[in-house]
Amino acid sequence: MSPPALALENITCTFVSGARGGARYTAVRDTTIVVAPGEFVSVVGPTGCGKSTLLNVAAGLLAPSAGTVRVFGEPLAGVNRRAGYLFQQDALMPWRNALENITVGLEFRGVPRETAQEQGRDWLRRVGLAGFGDRYPHQLSGGMRKRVALAQTLILDPQILLMDEPFSALDVQTRQLMENELLELWSANRKSVVFITHDLEEAIALSDRVVVLSAGPESHPIGEYAIDIPRPRDVSEARLTRRFLELHAEIWHAMKAEVLKGYARQLQ
């Protein structure tokens, strides 16, 4: 059997903060998540439970306090070169316009300018921003910036795609368009995807598997659900199937207590 594309093994992340490192906060404890090649896994959990933290660990941007990360069987050292990362926050370079932002990864790889520009324009079209190549990030809407970021990552054709709430800034219609687009891209050349979202419906509609995290601190997976809705899917149609509703009820039941717990903790 081929090794998993991404394996987070017994990851624990403890943040030290405060003046003399006095305050410690264990965001994630003893978490194992394994993603097979070509698998689409969603991670849901209440806000502040450590989803972004886990993704940073998978990207190699954050060294875990304990545990190992394996990428196609190899222990990860430094930045994860086989992964593309869509950040939750704005991550475009403000001094480059949309097209230049999309092609910057190709530039890093030494792809000739002409080729890069050509591919960049193609990707601008694919994310629905054909006429916006010369706009700077501050001239784009939040949703447009997200789409530029998506093109910026996908143009490099990474084997693993890490996505942190990529569509939460979009309106419902655009969001469903993008979700379908993502599914299409994904099924064309199966990448492994780790998809983080607040939105349980989105998670079920897109994924092969949904991992539910408990509320922090010391967050850990409290449930894994295989989503056996047949593919190819259309996200808006999938939401109407009986199986979808069953799964939704089942997972929501497990999540609800955690969401309330997390909310109560944040109010304190």
Binding site: A59, L61, R81, F87, A91, P94, G105, F108, T153
Partner: peptide
């Protein structure tokens, strides 16, 4: 975040200097 993004997109330390 911009810095981390550039690193994920494959920038070497030298390219980080020049591009970021």
């Amino acid at each position: 975040v911009v810095l981390a993004n550039a690193r994920m997109l494959g920038a070497s330390p030298r390219q980080l200097l020049r591009y970021v």
